[in-house]
């Protein structure tokens, strides 16, 4: 499923014109993105939480050459599915 499929579904289910449905999907995603970029978490009840985690600087190795390199501190996004979400996939068919 892709972004266009989500927009189609919103269009079909709620009668919102396709172009507006696509714009709405975009708005929602941008809002989440902007919030996370400020370092703030996004909590969606019944779905899950998006968090920003700070990673410390650590040493890594170039797996090809074995050379030791520094990995700079960084911020990464993590997602924790809610219990409802987790339960809903337990009996799913595995096709990906």
């Amino acid at each position: 499923m892709r972004k266009a499929d989500i927009a189609s579904l919103i269009h079909e289910r709620h009668g919102l014109p396709k172009r507006e449905a696509a714009a709405m999907v975009e708005l929602i995603l941008d809002e989440i993105k902007d919030t996370l970029s400020r370092g703030e978490e996004v909590k969606i009840a019944g779905f899950g939480n998006f968090n920003v985690r700070k990673k410390r600087e650590r040493k890594g190795r170039n797996p090809k050459t074995g050379e030791e390199i520094g990995i700079t501190p960084r911020r990464v996004v993590t997602f924790r599915a809610s219990p409802v979400f987790k339960d809903s996939v337990l009996d799913s068919i595995h096709s990906n």
Binding site: M1, R2, D5, I6, L9, I10, R13, H14, M24, V25, I28, I44, G46, F47, F85, S88, V89, S92, I93, H94, S95, N96
Partner: peptide, 16 residues
């Protein structure tokens, strides 16, 4: 509906 659609897709083994 948007979050439900993502959840439903995964529940049938699809990916988003």
């Amino acid at each position: 509906t948007m979050f439900a659609s993502i959840k439903d897709a995964l529940a049938v083994g699809d990916k988003v």
